[in-house]
Amino acid sequence: MSVSTRDIENCALDLLGGRAATSSICPSDVARNLVSDEEGWRALMPLVRDVAAQMAREGKVLITQGDVTLDPDAMIHGPIRLRRGPAFPVSA
């Protein structure tokens, strides 16, 4: 199965939309929802992080480490979380 950047974005938005507005998700939640085997979802993680950075630039998500919101254009290392951003699409 080939996973597109659109698949990743839609999955992240769906996961965040299904949780409380103040909740967060791990990028691996996205990868695991798209690819079931461990080798596959781990291989997808760099692309998931790239898509998350683009979504953060668009204001759809915030990338956080602890209580700190990270710059999506900075080199981000370590565990991160994704939260709804100011431009998170609200479904009607």
Results as ranks from 00 to 15, higher is better:
V3M: 06
V3L: 07
S4R: 04
R6G: 05
R6V: 10
D7Y: 07
D7R: 04
I8D: 01
I8H: 04
E9N: 11
E9H: 09
E9D: 07
N10E: 14
N10L: 12
C11I: 01
C11K: 05
A12P: 03
L13W: 01
L13H: 03
L13G: 04
D14C: 03
D14M: 08
L15D: 02
L15A: 03
G17H: 06
G17F: 01
G18D: 06
G18V: 00
G18Q: 09
R19H: 07
A20M: 05
A20T: 11
A21H: 08
A21M: 06
A21T: 05
T22F: 08
S23C: 11
S24G: 13
S24R: 12
S24L: 08
S24M: 11
I25W: 06
C26Y: 07
P27S: 07
P27C: 09
S28F: 08
S28K: 09
S28Y: 00
S28N: 13
D29A: 13
D29F: 05
V30I: 15
V30K: 00
V30W: 01
V30A: 06
A31E: 05
R32T: 15
R32I: 14
N33Q: 13
L34H: 03
V35H: 11
V35Y: 05
S36R: 14
D37P: 05
D37L: 10
E38M: 13
E38Q: 14
W41N: 05
W41H: 15
R42V: 09
R42W: 08
R42Y: 13
R42Q: 15
A43N: 09
L44Y: 13
L44M: 12
M45E: 15
M45L: 15
P46R: 10
L47N: 10
L47T: 12
L47A: 10
L47G: 00
V48T: 02
R49Y: 06
R49K: 15
R49W: 02
D50P: 01
V51W: 00
A52M: 09
A52I: 01
A53F: 06
A53N: 10
Q54P: 00
Q54G: 10
Q54W: 03
R57W: 01
E58R: 13
E58S: 12
E58N: 13
G59C: 09
G59E: 06
G59S: 05
G59D: 04
K60C: 01
L62N: 07
L62C: 08
I63D: 02
I63G: 00
I63Y: 00
I63A: 00
I63F: 02
T64L: 04
Q65P: 02
Q65M: 07
Q65E: 12
G66K: 10
G66W: 02
D67L: 09
T69G: 02
T69Q: 12
L70T: 01
D71G: 01
D71R: 05
D71E: 11
M75D: 14
M75L: 12
I76T: 08
H77C: 08
H77Q: 15
L82C: 10
R83P: 01
R84H: 04
R84L: 06
G85V: 01
P86I: 06
A87P: 03
A87G: 07
F88I: 01
F88L: 03
P89I: 03
P89E: 02
V90Q: 12
V90I: 11
V90K: 14
A92S: 11
A92P: 14
A92Q: 11
A92M: 08
